[in-house]
């Protein structure tokens, strides 16, 4: 089936099977492998991308459902090699170890930061409850987000 979408500022047009999920389109067809699949059950959040600015689990969305949409993946955050503020803060706070959950966290956080709203630590803990990290104990992730809200 015919599909047109915009990924990280570039238009992509192609023929895809109806059952193809968005994450597989991004990873296998567009070779944007920064979007990771951690559960395909909509829980771990590693596959989070922005669809028209909204954080979405790309494992639960069919590619065709994104027809006409603008998608942002982790690869869009440092387009010219210059790290975004949140990426730089992650490195500074050592908010990643194995790095597998990181792209999903970054996209969820990007949605929060783009909203311009400020949240306290407890609010952030609730808002980031859609992403699972098994390495860090979450504390440095929250520290990085709080720094970027300043």
């Amino acid at each position: 089936m015919e599909l047109t979408l915009n990924v990280n500022g570039r238009e992509w047009r192609g023929d895809v099977p109806g059952r193809l999920i968005l994450a597989d389109l991004l990873r296998d067809r567009l070779h944007l492998t920064g979007t990771h699949l951690g559960c395909e059950q909509g829980v771990c959040g590693a596959c989070t991308v922005l669809v028209d600015g909204e954080a979405v689990r790309s494992c639960l969305m069919l590619a065709l459902q994104a027809d006409g949409c603008s998608i942002r993946t982790v690869e869009s955050l440092a387009p010219d090699g210059q790290l975004s503020r949140i990426q730089a803060a992650f490195l500074r706070h050592r908010a990643l170890q194995c790095g597998f959950c990181t792209p999903g966290f970054l996209m969820s956080i990007t949605e929060l930061l783009d909203s311009g709203q400020r949240y306290n630590r407890e609010e952030l803990a609730e808002m980031l409850s859609g992403n699972v990290c098994r390495c860090t104990g979450y504390e440095p992730i929250l520290d990085a987000v709080l720094e970027c809200q300043d």
């Binding site: 492998t33 690869e75 990181t102």
Partner: peptide, 18 residues
Amino acid sequence: NSRLLITGNGSYLADLEF
């Protein structure tokens, strides 16, 4: 290495192409 991972440029098993 950390910079690779944070920009989505890691090479985990599922990212390898053959």
